[in-house]
Every structure is written in C-alpha cells, then in structure tokens.
Design a protein around this nucleic acid. Sequence first.
DNA 1: GCGGGCGCCTTTGTATGGTAGTATGTTTCG
DNA 2: CGAAACATACTACCATACAAAGGCGCCCGC
Lengths: 223, 223
Amino acid sequence: MDAIRVPASGSAAQQVEAQLRRAIVTLALPPGTRLSEAEIAERHGVSRQPVREALIGLSRTRLVEILPQRGTIVVRISVKKMMEARFVREAIETAVAKRAAAGFDAGARARIDDLLDLQVKAATRGSQETFQAYDEMFHMALAEGAGCPLAWEAIADIKAHMDRACHLTLKGSMLPLVDQHRAIMTAVDARDGDAAAEAMRVHLSEILRALPKVEAEHPDLFE
Amino acid sequence: MDAIRVPASGSAAQQVEAQLRRAIVTLALPPGTRLSEAEIAERHGVSRQPVREALIGLSRTRLVEILPQRGTIVVRISVKKMMEARFVREAIETAVAKRAAAGFDAGARARIDDLLDLQVKAATRGSQETFQAYDEMFHMALAEGAGCPLAWEAIADIKAHMDRACHLTLKGSMLPLVDQHRAIMTAVDARDGDAAAEAMRVHLSEILRALPKVEAEHPDLFE
DNA sequence: GCGGGCGCCTTTGTATGGTAGTATGTTTCG
DNA sequence: CGAAACATACTACCATACAAAGGCGCCCGC
C-alpha cells in the first residue's frame, strides 16, 4: 500500500476536503454517490461543521453538487466540460511552456529532473496513485519555474474536471507521458518557446485519444 | 445611488460573501483591514457561521487571508501577482477570442451588443460600479458565446487579483475600453481569429499603462 | 382503484457554546 | 531601567443544538 498519505496538517476541514477529493478523483466515490454530512462526519470522527466546509470547497471546483435541503452528490463526468477544461488548460500551459523557454528558475529545473525520475519509478512499479501525484508536481514545478505560480492555481481548479477521466485512461501506459514531459523540458532547455508550446500541446492532446474508449467502457460514470 | 443590488438569493453565507467581495473590490474595505467574524456577523444580522463560510470563500480567491487563531485581513494588492494574473488571463482570453472567431453563438452575440450599449450609458453617466459589472458580463458572454463557459469561471478567479487595481485606474476614462471591446467583436464577426486575439491582447495590456501611476499614488494599498 | 392532501423523516442551513492558541498590555524581578 | 514572565482579551476553530424546507409514504376521500 503506497497511497499518498494526506498529511495531518491544517484544519480538520482541510483534511476532510483533501481526503474526499482523493476519494472522488480515484473513483472510490463514484459519480452519483450521495454524500451525507452526518455520515462523513461520523466516518472521520469529526463534527458536521468541518465536513460541511469541505463539501463547500469541493462544490467550488464542481466535484460535488450541493442541492439545498436535499442532499449532496458526486457529479458525473461531463465530456463537454472536459473538452472545455482541456481547451482552457492548453491555453494556459502552452503559454507557460513558452514563457518557461524564455527563462527558467534553476532550482525548479533541478527539482523537475528529480520528479521525472520519481515518475519513472512509480510507472515501472505500476503505482498509478503516486504517478499522478508526481504528474501534478511536474506541472506545478513548471509553472513555478516559469515564474507564474498563479498559473498552477488556475490549472488546479480546471484539472478537477479531467482528473477522474485521466485516472481511467492511465490504467495501462504511463511511461509515454514521461517521455512527453522530457520532450517539453528539452525544448525549454533549448530556449525554443514554440517547440515547448507545441510539445505541451501534444502532451495535453493525449487525453483525447483514449477518451471515447473509456466513455464507452464506463457509461455510468458519465452524464 | 445605483449600486448593483446583490440579490437576496441563496444562502446567507453566499449573500455575505457577495457583499464582502463587493466591499473589498471597491476598496470600501481597504487592504490591511482586519475582519472579525463576530463584528461582520453583527453588522449583517446573521450568525458567525455563515460569515465564516463567506470568509473561507474569499480566502480561496486570495482576497482575504485567514491566519489561524489570529485573525483575518484583507490582503494587499500584489503587483507581482497582478502581472501573473494578467499573463494567465491573456493566455485564456486570447484563446477564447480566437475560438470565438471560429464560431459564435447567435444569442450571445445579440446580448453582447446590448451589453456594449449599456456599458456606454454607464460610462457617460460616470457610474463606475455598473460599468465594471457590464465589463464582467461582456467577458463572460464572450466565453459563453465561444462555447467555453468554463473559461469564464477560470478567469473570474484570476480576475480577483486585478479588480481592485482596475477599480483605481478606471477613475477617468471608461469609453476607450468599450471601443476595445467593439474592436474585438469586429474581428470576431469578420471570423479573423488572429485579429481577435490581438485585439484582446491590446485590451488586456491596457492595465499595464496606468498601473505604475496608481501604485505611486496609493502605496499603502500595495504590498 | 385512483388522486390529492397531510404528516413524518432526512437533508442542509443557522445559531450558540465552548476550547485552544496567539498577541498584547501589565507587572514584577534582576 | 530593561527584560522576562504573567494575566487578559481576542481570534479562529470545532462541537452541539435548533430551525426550515424538500421528499416520501401513508392515509383518507372520492
């Protein structure tokens, strides 16, 4: 078991939110699941109030939908919203890649190499959870290195719409994604902004290939 | 008095959050102000709990900063974050503009014309509040018309970092911005994606011109 | 047998009490 | 006189209790 331990830092509400987010993204809580504040509170050994704040936080990124006086449910994956999210993310990240090629922070550059190695290890072990965690860190480090950490915050919100589908498509092949990451960094190191943006575009288009397949295999997860 | 009425819809927490957001953006609550849950609750005639949820919501868009067990303060305007936000917003909105030129919803197109007229009226009346409200609606309608309402959600979060500075820079001239909006739509109508993106880039670069001036005039508002 | 109305139950939303932790002002000792 | 230690007031945070509102089944009337 090498699940990413959500650190016991921050308030109880933040801990519950992090745990629920993980459960939803990994589809442990599949779309359509009814979430009761009272039940979650009991399971986590806390009061209803922190749970409520966690659910409000999740609703802001559209992972759950709160129906007043009725209940809270895990929203289904929307292909339409996924396409929109991918479009927006491509707009942001290609710009970030281009900017990264214009100048990159040395410390972040070194950390990215470490992350890529860790990603390879996770991929060969077949532990998808950690792989996706390192994938997130890669994109975050790229934004930071390019001098725009705010871009990652925007991407993080957008990514929520794609993460669950990515979780399904990554079942088999993870290593190709690392090669794409390396291709991006090669272009960045060569100071070739257009090539970096193009490499990023290719990387973010990957999801489009496997999407119809997983949608056909798991129709109940989509709306 | 033609302040935008925040509609009495939704929960008390949402109402309080909307009112506080307006107060912060209009600088009625200047940066550095200490916000006490108890005081705000009393002023709004509600309990502390909805106020708390409202403050949490504001902290997610970095308008306020919650220091655990210490207090909540209105964050100062960060030029660095503003530049980053402008960069990300340009990345998103130029992509949206280009996409809008490729195909635009008819209903949204009609609504934009109405919005532009309303914006001119507000500008000539000198009512900055409504002008900025219509400005928001313009960009939102553009994203919707381009078939990417999700883009607006991303922009809305990003915009929080810029709104207060824009509020200062708009003191005098609002009409030029409407012309820029018209220029964007002209390019969209002509199906010229590159021209639309360029017009949007010019529009979003406007803030850079007046920024040093307002920063020098109001140093206490910046960090 | 069928339709409408009534009451219970579950849900979120709100109010209030209590707790731990931090800053601050005061006091006291070196 | 300075500095450290203490008391106090304030804060966000969590727990508990209460209120309101929609859903659902049952029952009564037709």
